[in-house]
Design a protein around this nucleic acid. Structure first.
Lengths: 249, 249
DNA sequence: TGTACATCAGTGAACGCGCGTTCACTGATGTAC
DNA sequence: TGTACATCAGTGAACGCGCGTTCACTGATGTAC
């Protein structure tokens, strides 16, 4: 409920000198909302999501703790805003990399997007944890986050789609069970009309692998196995690209 | 440091009427240590790892909070013990499933182990989060956990190894870069002497996919995409088995 | 353009809470002779 | 087998802390006439 209000304000803040510049008060409000979120991100970096506190955030922006309540009605709403921003920042990184490699071969473009996601995660570890780690207890994602959360997988699908006119199906060893065909049909209808079942399935698997690989690295689950994580990541996501039969040139 | 002490006690407790039954005092100690950990797991279930508190655990076992310090010198040590137990419980589940399907075709045995891991995660969600979710801030895994943490991937490798005498390499589209070959050589030396590079690489990828798929399901990252998670999980881990060229019969 | 009122941002004190950890203690259990 | 001492488990009070949230308030900004 507040989220929509907050979202509206953000948009206003981002409207950058449009006709809706309105008055000093609402400009100040938009700016302070941003400052509070930045302080929240700093807190995140220092103590992690679980123990992020409104009071610490308030101290950081130089306000009294109760003043923050003029901007976010509760700690959870601040968290929600940070989650949304994190999804969008990650989405930006992925889409920017994808656009920058629009005229590269699909496999290269794919790798560029994957690498962008990984390096965003490395530079924003706690924001990454916020969205892909343990869900914050008691917290429920509002509808707003869904679109933002889908940006990376949609970008990955965009690359696969761009390659599909001239190319064959993805690696598939077994027939796909009926219930999954239904799920994939809905997915196809929503975002990727030109992709066949096995390709869609491999794409969802690749998305799972992308986050799995990043999390394994960040959380240390391959600590005594892999030493060269750069190489390993490229190899893994390259293998996914190959399973999807993405063109190399 | 305390861990080794605790571990020793556990082993004593588990020795079940051996010659080391010793006296009433140390038996009581072993039992209470278990009770405290069980209360810890109940707390985990209710509030999650991040806000697990010693005081709540103490209340749960009916002790005064300071008494818990006779058993665990700090909250972190209790957490460490719970983490170790979680790894071992998951390892038990996987190994039991593997042993129970020892004379099934490798692919079926593989799926059985994967399913066992998934259903353990579903029934022990917060313990799963404890080991595969966001690392608890400020917490460092002691050496003890490494062996326990390796049990599932080692079990997966056991299945692949059992199939390798009669079978070929795993799916590999690209040559494996030299630094990874080095990493894989160390892995081979430690746990799987008969496996070639591409098979080892696919096995590590499958391990990543297993945890990635379970986490995606548990944390809701495929919420509007997949509805039949049972089928999807089987399909995904089955595809990994096929990429490894595990025999179907 | 100037005034009167309404809206809003930020203050500072307070409430009630639960936390991790320490400490001096009591009483029960174990050990050495 | 019995006694004297040492070890250990559990108690209860206390320390100091930071938290989320509420509330009555002051003073600045915006709006209507």
């Amino acid at each position: 409920m507040f989220l929509t209000q907050s979202g509206a304000l953000d948009k206003m803040g981002g409207m950058a000198m449009g006709e809706a510049t309105k008055n000093a008060r609402s400009r100040a409000r938009a700016e302070l909302t941003q400052e509070i979120k930045e302080a929240g991100r700093r807190q995140l970096r220092e103590v992690g999501a679980a123990s992020l506190s409104l009071r610490a955030v308030a101290r950081d922006v130089g306000m009294v703790s109760s003043a923050v309540y003029r901007y976010f009605p509760s700690r959870d709403d601040l968290l929600t805003a940070l989650i949304l921003d994190a999804y969008d920042a990650l989405g930006d990184a992925a889409e920017t990399a994808g656009a920058a490699h629009a005229d590269h071969p699909p496999r290269e473009r794919w790798l560029a997007v994957c690498r962008a996601a990984r390096s965003w995660a490395q530079y924003h570890r706690h924001e990454y944890e916020l969205i892909f780690g343990t869900p914050v207890p008691g917290y429920r994602a509002p509808q707003d986050t869904i679109r933002a959360a889908a940006r990376v997988p949609v970008e990955l699908l965009r690359i696969v789609r761009s390659d599909r006119a001239v190319h064959g199906d993805a690696t598939a060893h077994a027939p796909i069970p009926a219930p999954i065909v239904v799920d994939l049909a809905r997915l196809r209808e929503q975002v990727a009309p030109e992709l066949d079942d096995s390709t869609l399935a491999r794409a969802v698997m690749a998305w799972t692998m992308l986050i799995g690989a990043i999390s394994f690295e960040l959380f240390g689950h391959l600590n005594n196995v892999i030493t060269d994580y750069d190489m390993w990541f490229d190899y893994v996501m390259g293998s996914c690209a190959d399973d999807l039969h993405l063109r190399r040139r």
